[in-house]
Simulated scan of single mutants.
Amino acid sequence: MTVPTPGPRPGDPRPPDERPVAALRADVEEAVAGLDGLDARPVAEHPAAFERVHSALGRALSAGSERG
């Protein structure tokens, strides 16, 4: 007799992200590290740095929310 492999439960909107929390935390830390040394850079470079960090944090947040 074959035992079926469990799949997503009915109603699950998307498959779970298998990345461990430590990997997601590392993504956040890497994103925030993009602000390191910002005070030594010209103010004209600040908006682009904030945009990069904002995008990276958004991706990390999305990946974390997919974990369910």
Rank of each mutant, 00 (worst) to 15 (best):
A60G: 08
P20C: 01
G37E: 13
A44S: 15
P8L: 09
D36A: 15
V53T: 14
G34K: 06
A40Q: 12
S55F: 05
E29L: 13
V21Q: 11
A60K: 10
S55I: 07
A60W: 07
R9K: 14
G58W: 03
R41C: 09
G64E: 03
R59I: 10
L57G: 07
P10L: 04
A60C: 05
P10M: 02
E18F: 03
G64T: 15
A60Y: 11
A23M: 01
R19T: 15
D12I: 01
A48C: 04
G37M: 09
S62H: 06
R25G: 01
A40P: 00
T2L: 00
P20W: 03
R52N: 12
R59W: 10
A48D: 15
R52M: 02
A49S: 03
S55V: 13
S55W: 06
R9Q: 14
D36H: 09
E30F: 01
V3E: 11
D27M: 10
R41T: 09
A56H: 07
G7V: 12
E45M: 05
R9C: 11
D17H: 02
A48E: 15
A60H: 08
R14T: 14
E66G: 12
G64W: 08
F50E: 09
S62Y: 05
E51P: 10
T2P: 13
R59E: 15
T5R: 05
R52Q: 14
E51R: 13
T2M: 00
S55Q: 15
R41F: 05
A23G: 05
G58K: 02
G7I: 06
A48K: 12
E66L: 13
V32K: 08
T2Q: 04
E29W: 01
A44I: 15
A22G: 10
G37Q: 11
D36K: 08
A56V: 10
P47R: 04
T2Y: 05
R9H: 12
F50A: 08
A33T: 13
L61Q: 14
A48M: 03
S62L: 07
R67S: 10
A56M: 03
P16H: 07
A49H: 05
P47W: 04
D27W: 00
L61T: 14
D39Y: 04
L24N: 07
A48L: 11
P15E: 03
R41H: 13
P13M: 00
R41I: 04
P16M: 05
H54Q: 14
S55N: 13
L38I: 15
V3I: 12
T2F: 04
L57K: 08
P6V: 06
M1D: 13
L57P: 01
S55G: 15
V43K: 12
M1H: 11
D39H: 13
S65A: 15
A31Q: 06
D36F: 00
A40D: 14
E30K: 12
P8G: 07
S62C: 02
P6Y: 00
S65T: 13
R19I: 07
A40E: 14
V53Y: 04
R9L: 14
A40R: 12
A31H: 03
L24R: 08
H46D: 13
L24P: 11
P10E: 08
P42Y: 00
V3H: 08
P15G: 04
